[in-house]
Structures are given as structure tokens and as C-alpha cells.
């Protein structure tokens, strides 16, 4: 009973959504920017979340074309964060490679210094 009630309430909300959700133009731009930013930093679609971001942005564009603005906004919002996550993941990966390289060089230097003594 409660479920039915909440579902009809949802329907009302959904109808309200139909009337009021504007076209999410700014959000789509923001999403495209964050994807471009992740790529500019060096992330590629080998990173799962960047692949997701691109797929969701594409679906958001399709939703806009079909006037489904709420779905478009949600997809674009998620895609923006997917891309930002990809960027952060990529940078963390890079920093770990750098740390490994530094540790390797330092170990080698220490070995050489011991050999000099």
C-alpha cells in the first residue's frame, strides 16, 4: 500500500519533471570539459571510468535529442565525475611509477657508494 502510494507520488514528481527539467546545456559542456581535461593530463580509455564517462556523455546527447532532459542531466553529471575519477586515478598511477623509479635510483646510488668505500 505504501509502495503504491509512493509510486504514484513518484509519478507526480516525474510529471513535474517533464514540465520543469530544462535542457542541461551547461552540464553537458562541463562534462565534455572534464573528459577533455582527463585526456589532456594523459588518461586514456584504458581506464574504465573514462570509458564510462564517454559512453554516458554519448547517451546524454542522445537523451537531449529525444527531449529527455532529466535523464540527460543525470547521465552528464555522472559522466563528469567518472572523468574526474579517471584523471585522479591516472595521476595516482603516474606518481606511483615515479616513486618506484626514485626508489630504484636511490638503491642503485647506495650500492655504488658502498662499492666506492
Amino acid at each position: 500500500m505504501i509502495n503504491k502510494l509512493s509510486c504514484s507520488a513518484v509519478l507526480l514528481l516525474a510529471m513535474a519533471g517533464c514540465a520543469s527539467d530544462p535542457q542541461p546545456t551547461e552540464q553537458l559542456q562541463l562534462t565534455a570539459q572534464s573528459i577533455a581535461q582527463a585526456k589532456a593530463v594523459g588518461a586514456t580509455t584504458d581506464i574504465e571510468s573514462l570509458k564510462q564517462a564517454e559512453a554516458k556523455l554519448q547517451r546524454a546527447d542522445q537523451a537531449v535529442a529525444q527531449q529527455q532532459f532529466k535523464e540527460a542531466r543525470m547521465l552528464a553529471e555522472q559522466a563528469e565525475l567518472d572523468a574526474r575519477e579517471a584523471e585522479a586515478d591516472y595521476l595516482v598511477g603516474q606518481s606511483e611509477v615515479r616513486l618506484q623509479e626514485l626508489n630504484k635510483q636511490i638503491n642503485r646510488l647506495r650500492t655504488q657508494l658502498r662499492a666506492q668505500q
Binding site: C7, V10, L11, A14, G17
Partner: peptide
């Protein structure tokens, strides 16, 4: 959307 909302439930 109603269908979507129902499946949402």
C-alpha cells in the same frame, strides 16, 4: 517516465 518510475520502485 511512469514506467521508468514504476520499475524504479
Amino acid at each position: 517516465l511512469l514506467v521508468a518510475a514504476l520499475s524504479g520502485c
